[in-house]
């Protein structure tokens, strides 16, 4: 039985469906389900956002999601079902950008697996966000380097403040 579901959803063909995530992870063994739903918000860093375009390297994104799922399984150390789907294309305010759902026997493992998965999707998956602003400008978000030398530098630069925040990298997202 497949226990990890991964998808890249081109929203030209339809939106992400959180209900589908819940259906996938539902299982009589599991009493706890944690979900994370990321939606496009209207403001970022003081600017009014009108929409977001997501660019993905599909093949590698799906492999990365699968590896993330396997790490979450090791973290949980017991039975788990996990759903990871990310949108691709041009999204409007309020559209679903990412859906993660984790189901386990109890809530603690479900929360941990869901948190691990969404953080890893944000920091490791080959996905790029371009914000469109009300003044007509657009900008690609700064992002996390996947290049090992630069990851190490970013983590050093993140320093004490990031360590205290429990999120060791040097920028906000």
């Amino acid at each position: 039985m497949t226990e990890i579901y991964t998808a890249v959803v081109d929203i030209a063909h339809g939106p992400l469906r959180p209900a589908e995530a819940l259906e996938f992870v539902a299982d009589p063994r599991f009493g706890g389900i944690a979900t994370f739903i990321g939606r496009v918000r209207q403001h970022n860093l003081g600017r009014v956002v009108t929409g977001i375009s997501y660019d993905l390297f599909d093949a590698l994104a799906l492999r990365t999601f699968q590896h993330i799922g396997e790490r979450a399984r090791q973290e949980v150390g017991g039975p788990m079902k996990l759903y990871i789907a990310h949108a691709k294309g041009d999204l409007r305010i309020g559209d679903f950008a990412v859906v993660v759902a984790a189901a386990t026997p109890h809530r603690d493992e479900a929360f941990r697996a869901c948190r691990l998965a969404i953080e890893a999707v944000k920091h490791e998956a080959p996905i790029w966000k371009q914000e469109h602003y009300i003044d007509g400008h657009s900008a690609w978000s700064e992002g996390c380097s996947l290049c090992e030398e630069h990851r190490a530098e970013e983590q050093r630069a993140a320093g004490l403040a990031a360590t205290q925040a429990g999120d060791a990298h040097g920028h906000e997202h």
Binding site: G38, Y54, L56, F57, A59, L60, H86, A97, V98, I118, V121, K122, H123, E124, A125, P126, I127, W128, K129, W140, S141, E142, G143, C144, S145, L146, H150, H173
Partner: peptide
């Protein structure tokens, strides 16, 4: 095989 260059990522 496919080869790609990936700028810093910003999913989610």
């Amino acid at each position: 095989g496919e080869l790609a260059i990936l700028p810093p990522v910003s999913g989610g």
